[in-house]
Deep mutational scan, measured.
Amino acid sequence: TEDEKKIQELLKRANGDVSKAEKLAQSQGNEELARRLREYANK
């Protein structure tokens, strides 16, 4: 999905570090994506 692409892109930029990727999403003002990242990471 589009969200998964965004999540994978963020994870790439954060070198696979979920908490960093989450902070990136939040810094972009994207709380929804940050929440999805957390769920994605907890799979």
Score class of each variant (00 low, 15 high):
Glu22Thr: 09
Lys5Ser: 10
Gln8Cys: 15
Asp3Gln: 09
Asp3Lys: 05
Lys23Arg: 11
Lys23Phe: 10
Gln26Ile: 15
Lys20Val: 14
Leu11Ala: 00
Val18Pro: 07
Ala21Arg: 01
Ser27Thr: 08
Leu24Ile: 11
Leu37Asn: 00
Tyr40Val: 03
Asn30His: 09
Leu37Gly: 00
Leu37Tyr: 01
Gly29Gln: 04
Leu11Met: 06
Ala21Thr: 00
Glu9Cys: 15
Ala14Lys: 01
Gln8Phe: 13
Thr1Cys: 15
Glu22Arg: 05
Glu2His: 09
Asn42Gly: 10
Leu10His: 02
Glu32Tyr: 11
Asn30Tyr: 13
Glu4Met: 13
Leu24Arg: 03
Glu22Lys: 03
Asp17Leu: 04
Gly29His: 05
Glu9Pro: 00
Leu37Phe: 04
Lys5His: 10
Lys43Met: 12
Glu2Asn: 10
Lys23Thr: 07
Glu31Arg: 07
Glu2Ala: 11
Val18Gln: 03
Asp3Pro: 06
Leu10Thr: 02
Leu33Pro: 00
Ala21Cys: 09
Gln28His: 07
Ala14Glu: 02
Glu22Ala: 15
Gln8Thr: 08
Arg13Asn: 07
Tyr40Gln: 04
Leu10Asp: 00
Gly29Trp: 04
Leu24Ser: 03
Thr1Arg: 11
Glu2Pro: 10
Glu2Cys: 14
Asn30Arg: 06
Arg38Gly: 02
Thr1His: 12
Leu10Met: 07
Arg36Glu: 04
Asn42Trp: 09
Asp17Trp: 05
Ala34Lys: 04
Glu2Trp: 14
Leu37Ala: 02
Gln26Glu: 09
Glu2Arg: 08
Leu11Arg: 01
Lys20Leu: 15
Asn15Thr: 02
Glu32Gly: 07
Arg13Leu: 14
Ser27Tyr: 08
Glu22Pro: 01
Ala34Val: 08
Arg38Gln: 04
Glu32His: 08
Ala25His: 01
Asp17Met: 03
Thr1Met: 12
Asn42Ile: 11
Leu11Trp: 02
Gly29Phe: 06
Glu2Ser: 11
Asp17Glu: 03
Ala21Leu: 04
Asn42Pro: 04
Lys20Pro: 01
Leu33Tyr: 03
Glu22Leu: 15
Arg13Thr: 07
Leu37Trp: 01
Glu4Ser: 08
Ser19Gln: 12
Tyr40His: 04
Thr1Ile: 12
Lys5Tyr: 11
Gln28Phe: 09
Gly29Ala: 03
Lys12Gln: 10
Tyr40Thr: 02
Gly16Leu: 03
Asp3Phe: 15
Arg36Gly: 02
Ser19Met: 12
Glu39Arg: 05
Arg13Val: 09
Arg35Met: 11
Asn30Lys: 06
Leu11Phe: 03
Gly16Pro: 00
Gln8Arg: 14
Ala34Glu: 02
Leu11Gln: 00
Arg36Asp: 02
Ala14Ile: 02
Leu10Val: 04
Leu24Asn: 03
Glu4Pro: 04
Arg38Glu: 02
Glu39Val: 05
Arg38Phe: 03
Asn42Lys: 14
Val18Ser: 04
Leu24Tyr: 09
Ala41Phe: 13
Gly29Cys: 06
Ser19Asp: 13
Glu9Gln: 08
